[in-house]
Design a protein around this nucleic acid. Structure first.
Lengths: 203, 203
DNA sequence: GTCGGTGACATACGCACTGTATGTCGTAGG
DNA sequence: CCTACGACATACAGTGCGTATGTCACCGAC
């Protein structure tokens, strides 16, 4: 239904998407505070007026860029989780895919480094509504229900795991390209062992 | 040696300290971006010129306020750790004291919520030089050396634990005063179990 | 005790952005 | 054709940082 749309609307969507992409790159390279909307506009041969036509303000622009990246990574991670036989293995599979996404410089920087800056103190409230946070929450709940881990306060556990994901994402975003595989392996290993601490003691 | 100092210098130190305290409160209440130096200056009946005389810029002012809070909490935590008989118990004791400090609204907000915003993308590089990070690093190393936990990549483990500390600190900073004890207990419990995942498997 | 020097501020200004209000032009629809 | 509306561009006001410059009290020397 979206294929046959008036030419005007097609053009508008195109510029909106271009602005979003340019903003993502700029935010990743120069940071949120360091990028002027003037520059983003120049990247797509437009003016700040165009940006303010499509987005309420600078923060909203960032939020849109963020959500696009986050939801895509979450989608892929959730898909990987669904292919695993047990909740425990689902969590590991999702972790693997998610960390792979964090290796992308734009993703890592925008989602983990700049998001707290852009969204300010409200970041952690906002985070709980994000796709990635909710995926973690679902995986935790599933593991508790299946007995893979002992019952824990879900919210607390999710927040802790989410922050660890953030640490891993930041490390990956900052690592040199050739170091990323090693860094990913280390975080995966320590991460896994820590979560394993929540498993029931072997009889 | 610092007691007998010229009157001028005493006054200067007093205003500097007053600025630091006022900045801490403002940053905690309104956030880093939300507080204008004009307001901080007004709080101590001075002007922005006075602030710029004592601190290089807004970020430096924040960093000074941050470091004061952080070093004090770290000092107390390290002292608690030193009184414990084993590295494992030392880590638990330090965790307890540190989380107690996080219950202070100014501390929690400045150190955990606003610091990434104020220091920007360089936050995580800066964090590794902070007192609290280094304390975690020492505790991890001590636990590995004593065999309390199995050998792990120290840097990776420290970063993960530090981020978990941050999650707990933020949760405590945001919790209502009457909820803080419960929140603290939950985070302590889950945190401890996760770290316990790093312990050697029982023979 | 006064006199030049210095340090602790206050005042005034430029500058870089953000956000908003208004203008323009092409396209869609009757 | 021509009127309306949506997609932008342009112009402007406001805010807040950083800096350059001024002023006045204190300190030490003579």
């Amino acid at each position: 239904m979206s294929t046959t749309r008036s030419r005007r609307e097609q053009y508008a969507q195109a510029t909106r998407a271009a602005v979003l992409a340019a903003a993502g790159r700029r935010f990743a390279e120069r940071g949120f505070a360091g990028t002027a909307l003037e520059d983003v506009a120049a990247d797509v041969h437009a003016t700040r007026g165009a940006i303010y036509h499509h987005f309420a303000n600078k923060t909203a622009l960032f939020a849109a860029a963020f959500e696009e990246l986050d939801s895509e990574a979450t989608r892929a991670s959730a898909a990987a989780a669904r292919r695993a036989p047990t909740p425990w293995e689902a969590a590991l599979a999702a972790l693997e895919v998610f960390l792979e996404h964090c290796c992308d410089p734009v993703f890592g920087r925008v989602v983990w480094l700049e998001a707290p800056i852009a969204l300010g103190s409200a970041y952690w409230q906002a985070a709980e509504q994000d796709a990635s946070y909710r995926l973690v929450e679902q995986l935790v709940t599933a593991m508790i229900d299946s007995g893979d881990i002992e019952p824990q306060p879900v919210r607390t556990t999710t927040r802790l795991l989410f922050s660890m994901l953030g640490a891993a994402g930041i490390a990956l975003a900052q690592a040199a390209p050739e170091d990323k595989p090693l860094v990913k392996a280390e975080y995966t290993a320590v991460f896994t062992r820590m979560v394993a601490g929540l498993r029931p003691a072997p009889t």
